[in-house]
């Protein structure tokens, strides 16, 4: 371990992995929410054309990739928001145009061959230069700052665009901001994860976190934690096992997702078993609330309402039957107790 940390390129790779693991899930959650899980992949294709131009011109490929990805992001979002019938085909043309151009440009370049694109496509830990690290660091700070300021507005637009517009939110500007954030994240990730795999690090940690978190906020915290562990862990494994870093990181993330999926399935099984023991009020048409006419009794973290001699407590879309004595025992058998523990561990 200390030997590994003593190597210059490994120090840079680990730092870059940290930045990627932090930024990618933060941006990706809004893509998941908008059902645009594959859009980052397309931007990676266009960024690759930028890389090829950089290699051909002898410039830093990071900057040319950034320019290519940001232009693609803006064009893609404008096409999407115009909701034109051929928008889908237009996106396909842009994305495949990007990857085709990159191969052709590289082949014509004296400085590289199509084989030299592999490191950009799948990530390689030896490729992070000190200059790259500075650029990635600044870009990550920009991503964090923009997400911190805009997150609830991005959330509102992604969850209900029509409502967001009615409330005066600048919907197109916010969607463009998200597209550009995605493009910048793609570029920050290009060394470590690779342009063909970066979308996975934006999406998979969020997919896993959705199985764990009980709110948008806590799921996002979980996603960042998972992203960091997989990204930094993937670089370490990549060094030890001599594997491409991008593939290693993404396989780790998918492993975490599978564990979360199995855990979630087991948990809902247990909750169903416990559900047999928890007592749901039958055919409950009335909605309890303050001033509903039924006596309200505070009961731990919620309120019971006395309804024809029964104590009813809200649970999801229905009501549970509670009694005076059950304040401890049934709560342990309850699905919510698991959720509460996770919530405590996950958020804030």
């Amino acid at each position: 371990m200390s030997e590994m940390l003593g190597i210059d390129f490994m120090q840079r790779a680990l730092l870059a992995a940290f930045l990627v693991g932090l930024a990618a899930p933060l941006v990706g959650v809004f893509l998941v929410q908008r059902r645009l899980a594959l859009i980052g992949d397309g931007m990676g294709h266009v960024a690759l054309a930028g890389v090829a131009v950089g290699v051909w011109a002898g410039q830093s490929p990071v900057w040319t990739a950034l320019i290519g990805a940001v232009i693609a992001a803006v064009v893609v979002e404008l096409i999407r928001s115009s909701a034109s019938a051929n928008g889908d085909v237009a996106l396909a043309i842009i994305f495949y145009g990007g990857i085709a151009a990159s191969v052709v440009i590289i082949a014509k370049s004296s400085r590289g061959t199509p084989a030299s694109l592999t490191a950009y496509l799948f990530g390689a830990i030896t490729t992070v230069t000190p200059g790259d690290l500075w650029v990635f660091g600044v870009l990550t700070v920009v991503i964090l700052a923009v997400v911190a300021v805009l997150r609830w507005r991005l959330f509102a637009v992604a969850s209900d665009e029509e409502y967001a517009q009615s409330a005066g939110l600048p919907v197109l500007a916010l969607n463009l901001a998200l597209a550009i954030l995605t493009a910048v994240t793609v570029v920050v990730s290009m060394r470590i994860v690779g342009l063909l795999l970066i979308s996975a690090l934006m999406i998979v940690p969020n997919a896993a976190a959705q199985l764990i978190g009980r709110s948008f906020r806590s799921a996002l915290a979980w996603a960042v934690a998972i992203g960091l562990v997989c990204s930094v862990g993937g670089v370490v494994v990549s060094y030890a096992a001599d594997t491409p870093s991008g593939g290693t990181i993404v396989l780790l993330a998918i492993g975490v997702f599978l564990v979360a999926a199995v855990g979630s399935a087991v948990r809902s099984r247990l909750a169903r078993a416990a559900g047999a023991r928890h007592d749901e009020a039958e055919g409950h048409g009335h909605e309890h609330g303050p001033g509903c006419g039924h006596e309200a009794i505070p009961h731990g973290d919620h309120v019971d309402y006395v309804h024809d001699g029964h104590r009813h407590a809200p649970h999801g879309a229905h009501y549970d039957e509670h009694s005076d004595e059950d304040s401890d025992e049934p709560a342990r058998a309850h699905e919510h107790s698991v959720g509460a523990q996770l919530r405590e561990g996950g958020s804030r």
Binding site: V29, V32, Q33, R35, W152, F155, A156, S159, D160, Y163, A164, N206, Q210, G213, R214, S215, F216, R217, A219
Partner: peptide, 13 residues
Amino acid sequence: SSVTVTVAEVVSS
């Protein structure tokens, strides 16, 4: 939706 969102989070928006 495709993500978990609490009642309070929707209302806060």
